[in-house]
Design a protein around this nucleic acid. Structure first.
Lengths: 234, 234
DNA sequence: ACTTTTTGTTACCCGTGAGTAATATATGGG
DNA sequence: CCCATATATTACTCACGGGTAACAAAAAGT
């Protein structure tokens, strides 16, 4: 009989193996496992005991790296937020029409929603955080919303998007995207990339001056934006 | 000094007044207060003590009407679901194009999302329910999703909607609508009706064969569906 | 008026899981 | 080799809140 729950691939605490790793790597390992458990069971039903067990350690060991459960929750959220911030930064730096930026944002954001840390942005409840951190979350959400609105407004200004209320349009688009975090799960028939492609078109087609079908081969040939894993400035 | 927390308008248990009301009315009063508290604080942070207090009764009294906290949660959900079932039934009965039905659904569903019981459909976590009830929720959600897809498929068949993948289109639209339950709150600048109007257009315009702008005065003059409260046929 | 039933209260139980204290064991430097 | 520090463990505390038991007081039936 194989010993249960022994030696999870992901854990750096392989029972009697190389336990020497940088502190930050372990912290991150905790977060990766925590976000998984939190999403799987919901924050309140999830216990730190289980998070620890899955990492082959015990609960108090977690307190070497984090002060409280809600701090872990916050840091999970923060990692997801960081991804979004990065992706927005890239798009901001790019030179395209408002519509182009909007499409790029939709695509990248949709992909993020299909990751654990991305989903945590919309599936975790800020009310579980200390007021201090809840405020940061609130501000960040506001920032994302404003980004959507800005791209839309830019698009209206430069003529790539037909006039509409940026606020409601942003709500509609962001809502659609955020919801991905609630229904997507690995192993389904849709791949994140396929979802992102479809949404990038469907969600913006109603706004575009020229339908995407007619304007197939456009001037700007790169509507999608890849993560800046490497410092690629073309 | 006015006595604190005395005589909430909504409560049928006015401290020393008419305590005689039908059992079902009281059950419903509990649910109305519960859904409010659950939404306000989140199911896990909310306590039955507080729900009871706000009704001028004590926690054990609730157990005259419900067996457990999660049963209360479920019944809140069920009331919202009932609204949706009704509204779908009305639209099903109507004779319009697929696009017309879809627009009617979007409008009515959006309005529902702006109510407490409506929001509970998307803000409560089925995992808090007994498996028995969680299964009912799962089935109901599936039903709603299929309704969206059916209207879209109908629309494609009758030519009112341009060809697309009904599954993804339904996800996109429903996501947008469901998200309303997360951001809408009474007292904002948007009224539920205004939101519903805007969404009914914005979410379907990308799908329609003819943009709503061009096809303003159409054959079917009633794109919105009112609750059958009054028989108002303009 | 009396009993019975329904509905409410006060006082309690008790499982759970976050967080802590005391202690042990690696790890690494001198 | 020994001490200092970081990291982990075992064994505990303790607040919280769902749920129950025992009892009280209305309502309602007869």
């Amino acid at each position: 009989m194989t010993d249960e729950r022994t030696a999870n691939d992901q854990s750096p605490w392989m029972p009697f193996e190389n336990r020497r790793r940088a502190r930050d790597e372990k912290r991150e390992a905790v977060l990766r496992m925590a976000v998984q458990v939190f999403l799987e069971q919901g924050y309140h039903r999830a216990t730190l005991n289980e998070v620890a067990e899955r990492l082959n350690i015990t609960k108090p060991a977690l307190y070497n790296y984090f002060r409280s459960k809600d701090e872990i929750l916050f840091e999970c959220w923060a990692l997801g937020q960081e991804q979004v911030d990065d992706l927005i930064a890239v798009i901001n730096r790019s030179r395209q029409s408002g519509l182009g930026k909007l499409r790029a944002l939709v695509h990248a954001y949709a992909e993020t929603m299909a990751t654990d840390f991305g989903a945590s942005l919309v599936r975790f409840d800020p009310r579980d955080l200390k007021p201090h951190n809840a405020e940061k979350v609130r501000a960040a959400k506001r920032g994302i919303d404003l980004t959507f609105r800005r791209y839309i407004a830019e698009g209206i200004a430069d003529g790539s998007i037909k006039p509409c209320d940026p606020k409601l349009a942003a709500f509609a688009i962001a809502g659609s995207l955020n919801w991905i975090g609630h229904w997507y799960q690995r192993g389904g028939s849709l791949t994140p990339d396929a979802i992102a492609d479809e949404f990038a078109i469907r969600l913006t087609d109603g706004l575009a001056r020229r339908s995407v079908k007619k304007a197939s081969a456009e001037a700007a040939p790169a509507p999608r934006t890849r993560k800046p894993t490497k410092g690629e400035n073309r």
